[in-house]
């Protein structure tokens, strides 16, 4: 029992024995979540990332109202208009489609792919990781070797192969991307669960006769959420990039649907004559992925309780 008043214990220990003030009147008691949120808000990069992402999400949600043109409308008379041509703010492509509108609708697709893939793969990864970490033994060995196998396959080629065999549909794209990106989460969750399995509150739950399923889903998952959220956030960026890559290769989103990757693919023919066509979607991808990564890092440092001041400070007074 050291007397160093760091961490939560001495500060949180609430006044006196029985006659304690209720939670309403107890001051200074801040929930862990709110404390993390406060730390998050103090991180300028994370906040900027959040604002940018929100901006894109809103733009995607309301694309239909914001977009001045139908993104698929072909108007050969207005083809290849440059930047700032009247109603076509960012100009048009070789078929006369409005680039700004196409960007808006593309963000719908890219973000939806990003979020869905992150969600599905986190779900698969968490399930496998949790079961492996909790039960251990042969189950663990089996799943972890499976992770090793998945990690040894050149995933881009696997993706291309599967899309080439099964054809390209939106749902299939999400499934295939998720199918090839759950391993990181599985490993992470397994590691966390291996630690949590040894905690006394898990042992206490076992001593109460709680079923394994309930221990995993009720007691343990909520203690693993922090790293899972961080990982999921970072995964959104990865999924957007993968989608862009596959669409660029012509295997992802198919016309008339559009995505940033597909726009890039389209723009490559005109790189010399109209490089701006490639710059817009490329910039969108860069900015969104960067924003998502900033948010992920922000959450990471906001919830990591081991962050501690480790430098001598100027003394007060004197």
């Amino acid at each position: 029992m050291s007397g160093i008043p760091l961490g939560e214990s001495p500060l949180a220990g609430n006044s006196l024995g029985g006659g304690n003030p209720g939670p309403e009147s107890a001051p200074q008691v801040v929930s862990l979540g709110r404390m993390a949120w406060r730390r998050f808000l103090r991180n300028p990069f994370a906040v900027a990332g959040l604002i940018v992402l929100l901006f894109f999400v809103i733009a995607a949600l309301f694309a239909r109202f914001i977009a001045p043109f139908n993104p698929a409308r072909i108007d050969l008379l207005a083809a290849n208009l440059p930047l700032g041509s009247g109603a076509h703010i960012l100009g048009t492509d070789e078929l006369g489609r409005d680039i700004f509108s196409r960007l808006l609708y593309s963000s719908q697709v890219s973000l939806l792919v990003g979020f869905s893939v992150a969600f599905v793969s986190v779900f698969i990864g968490t399930l496998i990781g949790a079961v492996s970490g909790y039960f251990g033994g042969l189950i663990d060995t089996f799943f972890m070797r499976m992770v090793d196998v998945f990690n040894s396959v050149p995933l881009l080629f696997l993706n291309i192969l599967m899309l080439a065999i099964f054809g390209s549909s939106f749902v299939l794209l999400i499934c295939i991307l998720a199918f090839t990106s759950w391993m990181g989460v599985a490993r992470l969750v397994r590691g966390t669960f291996l630690q949590l399995r040894e905690t006394q509150y898990v042992e206490a739950a076992k001593a109460l006769g709680t079923s394994n399923w309930r221990i995993i889903t009720y007691h343990m998952i909520r203690n693993a959420t922090a790293p899972i959220i961080v990982n999921a956030t970072l995964m959104i960026g990865g999924a957007i990039l993968s989608e862009a890559a596959l669409s660029f290769l012509g295997l992802g989103i198919q016309p008339p649907q559009t995505s940033w990757g597909q726009m890039l693919s389209n723009a490559q023919q005109y790189m010399l004559t109209d490089p701006l066509q490639a710059v817009y979607p490329g910039l969108c991808i860069l900015v969104v992925v960067l924003a998502v990564n900033f948010i992920g890092d922000g959450i990471q440092s906001a919830i990591d309780p081991r962050r501690k001041v480790r430098r001598p400070r100027r003394r007060l007074g004197r």
Binding site: M1, S2, G3, I4, P5, L6, S9, P10, G13, K308, V309, R310, R311, P312, R313, R315
Partner: peptide
């Protein structure tokens, strides 16, 4: 007991307290 300041006093003598915030 914990929170009595005994460790803080000793760390102050060593001036290690500066590193603990």
């Amino acid at each position: 007991e914990s929170g009595s300041g005994k460790s803080v006093t000793s760390l102050s003598v060593m001036r290690l307290i500066d590193y603990d915030g």
